[in-house]
Design a protein around this nucleic acid. Structure first.
Lengths: 256, 256
DNA sequence: AAGTGGTCTAGACCACCAT
DNA sequence: TGGTGGTCTAGACCACTTT
């Protein structure tokens, strides 16, 4: 076992300072980043690691926990712990309003969407405010898990006034295509981008560990008339998605 | 102790399903979000929590770990565990190129910057590529911890060709002000925004737990001539900063 | 000095996966 | 069935803060 020398109790003594689990974490991290452990390769079982490094299994788990959170390792229950294959990043330009489907197609990715929810519901207070719904009206909701090349990339939860999308079941691939058909394609959108730690349930859908960083994007789309068409919350995998924005210096503030 | 009833062993039995630490986490989370625990209020000591809920201290720590990672609780070594005060979010528009200082001043925040590093150095390979430096030339670096109303908000690490910033020690508040003075104020910039889990060292500077979500922003700024002026990596607290982008639908792709 | 969080241990049992 | 990760325990000692 090659790792025996890297992880020997003596090696740990000489590793960086701090608690044992940090030293162990650091040694493992260097082994991974340094290529001593190849992508997809299995780590020794936790019990073996504990014996090799002469620490308790709890300490091994704490070190591995960190590396899993950082995305360097992947645990598979009952199977083992493996060095992850890095996900290549995808970029989206912010200067142009496009749908996820159009966006990915342009890059040559095959996209797929798994339907999580689709139908007509009673609006939440937030939906009423964002979409400008009057009391008693209903709202169409479409929640989808977006995949690019069969890797989950984002969860998208869209709310649309039934006025513009009376038949949500017609939406199969692109929401914007269907809005085109109903004559309600938005021409302007405002996005709010922030970072968050992905909660357990969403993390499971995206295939990432709970607590991993995600890009949360709230988008409100407008018709030329100024009316709000849709309100979408998306959650992108932080390790797989970049947003690119071009900005210019000038006195031209945002359009009305 | 009010918590005794909320956290009693029986209450835990009836809480959501899953492992003990998840139930405990959920009960605590509901108590916090439901306002049963006020902001700034101290949680009972871990040992007490363990006894109240009739679980081991390790299990209590695992539940609390999660809530600390999510930012609902703050641990203070030797002092206690407290319900965090939420940080109000700040927004930055992406449609206009502004400096941090200008940006915050417009919102009425008082800003302060703690200098982390400032001087002239040998460039890294990345800096040479990004700034288009020729071999043997040097690079000016300014790293600062940005604060708004005395709360750390971002770490900013800027690299500038010495051609445009021969005397980095002149930069006190705004980098752009100094570039204005040397006649090298950029007119265009491209930003790449992504989410990441903040590493220990940076987390400490920002006053957030390691692993919390951060917005990583890489910015390359250009002169009107097209030359690159600066290359900046910023790391914003995910819980305190939003980026807002306005987009329009159209055939107008990004400018050359 | 007393109380708090931070780390660590040895051992146990369960749930899942491969064979 | 045997090996793997997932959870849990009781108890110990250390480091830091408060009094």
């Amino acid at each position: 076992m090659i790792l025996a020398s890297i992880l020997s109790a003596e090696a740990l003594q000489n590793a960086g300072r701090g608690p044992l689990y940090m030293k162990l974490r650091q040694v493992l991290e260097e082994a991974i980043r340094g290529g001593k452990l190849e992508q997809g390769e299995a780590l020794p079982p936790e019990r073996d690691l504990a014996e090799i490094a002469d620490v308790s299994r709890v300490t091994v788990r704490k070190a591995v926990d960190d590396l899993v959170r950082d995305g360097l390792l992947v645990r598979r229950h009952g199977s083992g712990t493996f060095v992850s294959k890095p996900v290549s990043k995808v970029q989206q330009s912010l200067s142009r309003l496009t749908s996820f489907t159009e966006d990915m197609a342009r890059r040559g990715f095959t996209t797929r969407a798994e339907l999580l929810e689709r139908g007509i519901f009673h609006p939440t207070t937030e939906e009423m405010v964002m979409l400008g719904l009057s009391a008693g009206t209903q709202v169409a909701r479409i929640s989808r898990l977006r995949m690019a090349n069969d890797t989950p990339l984002a969860i998208e939860r869209a709310s649309i006034s039934t006025e513009f999308l009376p038949e949500p079941e017609n939406v199969t691939t692109s929401l914007y295509e269907e809005l085109d058909r109903t004559g309600a394609r938005p021409v302007r959108a405002i996005q709010r981008i922030s970072a968050c730690n992905v909660k357990e349930a969403d993390a499971e859908l995206l295939g990432i560990p709970a607590g991993a960083a995600g890009l949360s994007i709230e988008r409100v789309s407008y018709l030329a008339s100024g009316r709000v068409v849709e309100f979408t919350r998306s959650l992108y995998r932080g390790d797989a998605y970049d947003f690119v924005a071009e900005m210019t210096l000038g006195e031209n503030d945002a359009a009305p």
